[in-house]
Design a protein around this nucleic acid. Structure first.
Length: 706
DNA sequence: ACGCCACCTATTTTT
DNA sequence: TAGGTGGCGT
């Protein structure tokens, strides 16, 4: 035990880098924000930062300091190579990653301005491209962005009207898959191989027409349309290439074909880019990511340089050995082997438990124990699982022991009804053709405009080829509708138009606040909510929306038209509050997917059972590689200790069933694992027999003694 | 327009 | 088992 502790201390030392204030930081939660690379880069990192001749692929293993390489490279380009901030573009997948990257670059370049430096998500980039030339593809300024719900609703309506035998979800999924591959409706129809695909392709075409009519784009369009734009307007592409002299892409293994094409287009034939990725951490193939884009790069750019970062600055030797051994079971294009100087560390424990409740209980007592013995903070622990439903017993156990925790994921801010309601108003103010927004606003709060009225309005608008809002003003509507209904519609439309006008002239945020006041949205919330608390909670979200708008307007420095604000809003750059929760000193509960990019001193990977990890559907499909990578991602999150757990039985759809230990446990180095079964026999058979023999020997010895 | 009941289905999720 | 949804009835 003593020796172990000493080891652990040793391991820890190189990780405590002095921060600006000379303070020593320990146990940081998020790599990117709190830790910087050691002052000295290792030779591979340095080579990656300094390489400018032609395209570069950095294969960055987990914990190898890849974000540090990207941020330092940006700093290098600006400081030493004469690039202006506007000429450098860094692309990430999430807003969070973009924020962290910008923050780190800002710190590296504390002495010089970074204004104009482009760091953002693929979607934000697509939005910017489209907003600078909306007319080139037939959009008008102020176009709306449909979120997943709008989009599904739209598809469902098309399916319903066409009386197709098609699940809207499936159609929406298929359309998304086509868009990810940059396949347009005509190509989709041409390539359709089944009746179902033909039907989907038809829906796809109708859906695109519909979006066009609404002057709206969905999330996938933000990637697909820029590709189309550049492929059909070489002069615009040329202008963008002129502006962007260097391109950096993070998490390259997560790119889909549309993103790949966008990168190729923007970076030009010479390939002035650095992409960073790790094929072993590709866990999003199920939503269109193509890890093979890494290998493809070498074919498309014969001059490609590949640099591997294999030194890990995060985990102990035993943890890395486990990770390496596991992932070696996957086929590889690029061989990669992580190593570290952080010492061996503790062995990996495997807790086999009776059932999920027992599993939770044992892990929580483990946390209590470590917290006490090593004075670990709650925030040092992470419990990682395959599916969100697994969190429940852990939440219960943690609550029972009064341990603070935070569950990542769950409802997005933009899924709250109150947020959707008000965003609909904003969208309508900016884009009068957004019929979805119109339909949402028109009766929220109630304006006594009934379904029949709206039906007739829609029919009329359809005939005239105009939006619902515009149709409200038409004299021709008088013949179709009773005067009262028409007056209500016209009153609403006039009012909306007036608000839109005010927003264009004056302070958009103030106009919006007034609007919310005028419709007495707060009163509406109170009347809708079951309890006053609920109304209060919802109103808080509304205030948060206000605050976000204020902040963003301030950040945009006078350039903030309502249209600008609304466009950015749909890309949700607003995570501040959620992160405040996550940053607190709490045990982290999250899915393995959500854990990517994070690290924790103590990691528990729970539910290590066949059917869960690897997931049943993966077993059925016969391809376990992505599940293995998921386990790999989980393992490589751990800095000091790693613990697996499994339950001998689990409810699968209300029915208890016996489980088998995950095959992944068997793929780990046996000598580094400590099985702790207790009374539960869910260990691999060899071990069970060995234990049995030992037990027998013990008994014999006792008998002989007696 | 709302509420209740019955039925169905259980991965991962960002923008 | 539980939660979510869709349809039907009031």
């Amino acid at each position: 035990m003593q020796a172990h502790t000493a080891h652990v201390r040793n391991c820890d030392r190189p990780r405590n880098f002095p921060t600006a204030g000379g303070r020593v930081e320990s146990a940081p939660f998020r790599t990117a924000l709190h830790r910087s690379l050691p002052v000295e880069l290792n030779p591979q990192q340095r080579a990656a930062v300094h390489h400018l001749e032609g395209p570069l692929l950095v294969l960055a293993g987990a914990g190898s300091g890849k974000t540090g390489v990207i941020t330092r490279k940006i700093a290098w380009l600006l400081r030493e190579c004469g690039y202006r901030p506007r000429q450098v573009l860094a692309v990430t997948f999430t807003n969070k990653a973009a924020r962290e990257m910008r923050e780190r670059v800002r710190r590296l370049l504390a002495d010089r301005p970074v204004r104009g430096l482009r760091i953002g998500t693929f979607h934000a980039l697509g939005l910017e491209i489209l907003r600078t030339h909306p007319q080139a593809l037939g959009y008008r300024a102020g176009f709306s962005i449909f979120d997943t719900h709008d989009s599904l609703h739209q598809v469902a309506e098309i399916v319903r009207k066409a009386r197709l035998h098609l699940e809207p979800e499936h159609a929406r999924w298929q359309i998304g898959a086509w868009k990810n591959e940059a396949i347009d409706p005509e190509a989709a129809l041409a390539g359709a191989e089944s009746d179902r695909e033909v039907a989907c392709a038809r829906v796809y075409a109708a859906y695109q027409d519909q979006l066009r009519a609404y002057n709206a784009l969905d999330f996938d369009d933000l990637l697909l349309q820029p590709v189309r734009l550049f492929e059909t307007h070489p002069e615009l592409l040329e202008a963008w290439r002129e502006r962007i002299r260097y391109l950096l892409v993070d998490e390259y293994q997560d790119t889909n074909p549309a993103q790949y094409r966008l990168v190729r287009l923007l970076s030009g034939p010479l390939g002035a880019f650095t992409v960073v990725g790790d094929d072993d951490q590709s866990i999003y193939a199920w939503r269109g990511a193509r890890p093979e884009n890494l290998a493809r790069l070498a074919e498309d750019y014969p001059r490609l340089t590949v640099i591997k970062l294999e030194q890990n600055y995060r985990s102990t030797g035993i943890i890395l050995r486990a990770a390496n051994r596991l992932i070696a079971h996957n086929p590889h294009v690029f061989e990669k082997r992580l190593w570290s100087r952080l010492g061996q560390g503790e062995r990996i424990r495997v807790l086999s438990c009776r059932d999920p409740e027992h599993e939770a209980e044992r892990i929580v007592s483990e946390i209590l124990h470590r917290r006490f013995q090593e004075r670990a903070r709650d925030g040092d622990f992470a419990i990682l699982y395959r599916g969100n439903h697994q969190s429940r017993p852990f939440e219960q156990a943690l609550r029972a022991h009064r341990i603070p925790y935070h569950v990542s994921g769950g409802t997005s801010f933009f899924d709250y009804t109150e947020v959707k309601d008000l965003v609909a108003y904003l969208r309508l103010l900016v884009n009068e053709d957004d019929d979805r927004a119109f339909l949402r606003c028109v009766n929220t709060p109630r304006r006594e405009i009934g379904a029949a009225t709206l039906e007739k309005l829609a029919a009329y608008a359809g005939e005239r080829g105009i939006g619902l809002l515009a149709a409200c003003f038409e004299a021709g509507l008088a013949q179709r509708l009773p005067a009262r209904a028409r007056h209500r519609l016209e009153g609403f439309a006039t009012w909306i138009a007036a608000q839109a006008d005010r927003a264009r002239r004056g302070d958009p945020v103030a106009v919006f606040r007034d609007l919310v006041e005028e419709i007495d949205y707060r009163g509406w919330l109170e009347s809708q909510a079951k309890t006053p608390e609920e109304a209060g909670r919802r109103w808080e979200n509304v205030e948060e929306l206000f605050e976000w708008m204020e902040r963003t307007r301030a950040a945009l420095e006078g350039e903030a038209s309502l249209a600008e604000l609304v466009a950015r809003m749909s890309l949700m750059d607003l995570l501040d509050r959620k992160d405040a929760d996550a940053d607190g000193d709490r045990v982290h509960l999250m899915t393995l997917h959500a854990a990517k990019g994070l690290e924790f001193p103590h990691v528990f990977i729970v539910g290590m059972e066949e059917g869960l990890l690897p997931h049943r559907s993966a077993i059925e499909s016969g391809d376990l590689t992505e599940e293995r990578r998921l386990a790999y991602v989980g393992i490589t999150r751990a800095r000091r200790t790693l613990t697996f757990s499994l339950a001998a039985r689990r409810r699968v759809g209300g029915q208890w069933s016996e489980t088998e230990p995950s095959r992944f446990l068997q793929e780990l180095p046996e000598e580094d694992l400590v099985w702790e079964g207790g009374r539960c026999d869910a260990r691999p058979p060899e071990e069970r027999r060995a234990r049995g023999r030992a037990h027998l020997a013990n008994l014999k010895a006792l008998l002989e003694d007696g």
